[in-house]
Simulated scan of single mutants.
Amino acid sequence: MEDCEGGWEELRKEARKIEGDLDVKLSSYAKLGGMLSHGGDARVEGSWKSMDTEIELLLEKLLDINDSMSRCVAAATSTTSVTQKLARHRDILHEFTQEFRRTRNNINSMREHAELLTSVRSDISDHKASGSSSPAASLLRERGAIHGNIAHMDEVITIAHTTKVALGAQRTTFMEIQGKVKQLGDRFPAIRGVLGAIKRKKSKDTLILAGVITACILFLIIYWLSK
């Protein structure tokens, strides 16, 4: 019994250590799987596979230790406390095993989904590439470009025609105004005479102003030379 009790304690100590390692590794395993399912590189995939193998080995080792503890308990007179502790270790092993399988299945499902999306996108890209390089697609593309150029030319021609019409209308308006002014002058000679007088007076004033400016300049030159 004493040998069994000593072996029991050693087995429990080893079981608790493995349980702690499994708790840490399962958390890291889930994180690596999440990174891998979102397009992780080869290094992440290698780390994930390595940890997957390590967790499997730890679970197998913990199962062996639980079996050894069960044999130890069966070979000796066990108390209720020992039986409860053994049951707790079995529950922990079951929980870790279920969590590992569930996480692995989820990660594999996400990886398959990501690979399927990548494959579909690749097929679509290949289809577009092969379609764009076909003669029919090239002809359609050239035809579209020609139609676009023709539409642009039509737009330019329309703008030019509109501008021509506007300039013609302005020219007609100016000619009409000029004709009306001439008719007004012919019908009212007095007005034409007044306009002529104003024009002559303006010319006379311009000549007087030019003479005054010239005289001032000459006076300044003579004054400067006499000094």
Rank of each mutant, 00 (worst) to 15 (best):
V165N: 08
D123L: 08
E2R: 02
L63M: 09
A136M: 11
L57E: 14
L36W: 03
A114V: 02
T97W: 00
G131H: 14
I146Q: 15
I213Y: 06
L62A: 07
R171T: 10
K25E: 01
D52R: 03
G20L: 09
S119N: 10
T214I: 07
A87I: 03
I124F: 09
I18E: 00
A197G: 12
M1E: 14
T79G: 15
L93C: 11
H89G: 05
T80N: 05
A145Y: 04
T206S: 15
S37L: 01
G196H: 13
D52K: 01
L209M: 06
E45F: 08
K180Y: 08
S125L: 10
L207H: 07
W8V: 06
E142C: 08
I65A: 07
G7C: 05
V156K: 13
G179V: 03
R102C: 00
G131W: 15
Y29Q: 06
I124M: 09
K49T: 01
D91G: 04
T80C: 02
D41L: 00
L32D: 10
I146S: 06
I222L: 12
C216W: 05
E60Y: 04
S132H: 10
G196Y: 08
V73L: 15
G193N: 13
G168E: 14
L86C: 04
F96M: 01
E112I: 02
L140W: 07
N66W: 01
I191M: 15
